[in-house]
């Protein structure tokens, strides 16, 4: 198995076999994480810095735990509170951190392409933990692992991605990953949130949720990103919930064994019914969180291994 990438910046750069390699390794860590002694030493002695230029609790905690369980020294930097406020540029911040010789940089940034830019200026491995509306590769990988475990395969499935696709890096990364693995992808939402250009990527675009959910194997709900909206994409949350919120009645149109996913954090009663989200027979939302740690452990291990091979 070879994984020849310096960084994990997006799904776009990965091949089918890269994706499979990460998921296969992650399976091993799912087992480890379920034991009471969760320690491994694949990253022992390495330094991991989490740089989050945008608020995050879940993703940052997941990366932190992943690093610690593999024995890395992990440092969290809340970039909003630091030198960015003093006018330092992204590149200067990157160069400063680079001089401290980290081995893994986990970066989230509110602007598309910012993590790519940063990766050009540092020597260590960079993991994109979400850049603007562009990509969020580990989220797509953890979604893929969740689907593969629930459905027994990661190909020839009909996956409906619903909601705020326009502002979602999760949707973009999933669209690319699921496309590479040869699935049928449907995007559902009002045209203000699902621009027609997505049809050019081989996805089917549905404005009517009932049509889009028909016979779906996987229903992936997206968070309505209120903070990225500069006004006027939908008339109101209640109308949005009425037309595009997932509830039991709408879910009944999908296959009887369809699973429900959500990248979190959820807006209950806006894009998803609270009871449905908690229904352990349909919702795999908690599994997604669990797979997140395992997938991030796998991705970091593969990057560290590649760097060792290059150095050797």
């Amino acid at each position: 198995m070879s994984f020849a990438h310096r960084h994990l910046l997006g799904i776009e750069q990965l091949s089918q076999s890269d994706i499979t390699a990460i998921l296969d390794l992650a399976e091993k860590y799912v087992e480890l994480n379920r034991q009471s002694l969760k320690h491994a030493d694949e990253l022992s002695g390495l330094t991991q810095i989490n740089m989050f230029f945008e608020n995050s609790t879940r993703t940052q905690a997941s990366f932190e735990l992943a690093g610690k369980r593999l024995g890395a020294d992990v440092m969290n930097m809340a970039m909003q509170a630091s030198s960015i406020k003093k006018g330092e540029t992204l590149i200067d911040t990157a160069m400063t951190l680079n001089a401290m010789h980290p081995d893994l940089l986990v970066v989230r940034h509110p602007q598309s392409g910012a993590v790519d830019l940063l990766a050009q200026k540092v020597n260590c491995a960079v993991l994109n933990a979400g850049d603007g509306r562009h990509e969020h590769p580990t989220q797509a990988l953890l979604d893929a692992l969740t689907i593969r475990r629930a459905k027994g395969r990661l190909h020839r499935l009909t996956v409906a991605i619903c909601g705020d696709v326009a502002h979602s890096r999760v949707a973009r990364s999933n669209l690319i990953l699921l496309g590479k693995m040869e699935n049928r992808i449907r995007l559902i939402g009002p045209p203000t949130l699902v621009p027609g250009h997505f049809a050019e990527f081989g996805a089917e675009v549905y404005e009517d949720m009932s049509d889009g959910l028909k016979d779906a194997d996987v229903v992936m709900m997206l968070r309505l990103q209120k903070e990225r909206m500069d006004g006027g994409f939908i008339p109101s949350e209640r109308e949005y919930y009425h037309r595009y919120g997932l509830d039991a009645a709408k879910l009944a149109l999908a296959k009887p064994d369809a699973i429900v996913m959500h990248p979190g954090p959820m807006n209950r009663g806006v894009e998803i019914d609270g009871t449905l989200a908690d229904d352990i027979n349909r919702s795999v939302i908690q599994e997604q969180v669990e797979m997140g740690v395992a997938v991030r452990m796998a991705a970091m291990e593969l990057l560290a291994r590649h760097h060792r091979e290059v150095a050797a």
Partner: peptide, 16 residues
């Protein structure tokens, strides 16, 4: 307002 690219496949893929 606020645009950095022309809408289309490229801007969609790159999230601009």
């Amino acid at each position: 307002q606020g645009a950095a690219a022309t809408s289309g496949k490229f801007a969609t893929l790159y999230g601009l």
